[in-house]
């Protein structure tokens, strides 16, 4: 098994996630794409942890999973609030900061 096969897999997932974040207008879909990016990072951490036979990789992956769960909770609450105030979760319409 090559180390690179896991790293390439993660890189491809990461790029697909970036594409999703950049092209999606719907707030929930943007959050879904962010999950994809975080998972790609986790694959990298666990692959390097297995490569170096070090437990830190898996521990950090677990930390990221926990932080991602917190992020989804807060992110969805914000999306819900935007929906309640504007009747739409189109992120291109949330442009109050634009001069």
């Amino acid at each position: 098994m090559f180390l690179n096969q896991f790293l390439f897999f993660a890189a491809i997932l990461f790029s697909i996630g970036v594409y999703g974040v950049l092209t999606r207008k719907n707030g929930v879909l943007v959050l879904l794409s962010i999950e994809l990016i975080l998972n790609a990072v986790n694959i990298n951490l666990i692959a390097f942890g297995a490569y170096h036979q070090d437990l830190s990789g898996q521990v950090f992956a677990l930390f990221i999973i926990a932080v991602a769960a917190a992020e989804v909770g807060v992110g969805l609450a914000i999306v819900l609030l935007i929906y309640r105030n504007r009747r739409s979760i189109d992120v291109s319409e949330a442009d109050l900061l634009k001069g």
Partner: peptide
Amino acid sequence: LGAEFAAATQVMVYLGAVMVLMLFG
């Protein structure tokens, strides 16, 4: 990759909790 606990956590947290949250969203 031999990370069994991370796999179990992934199934429980992501497939269980996060996906339900997303569908609720």
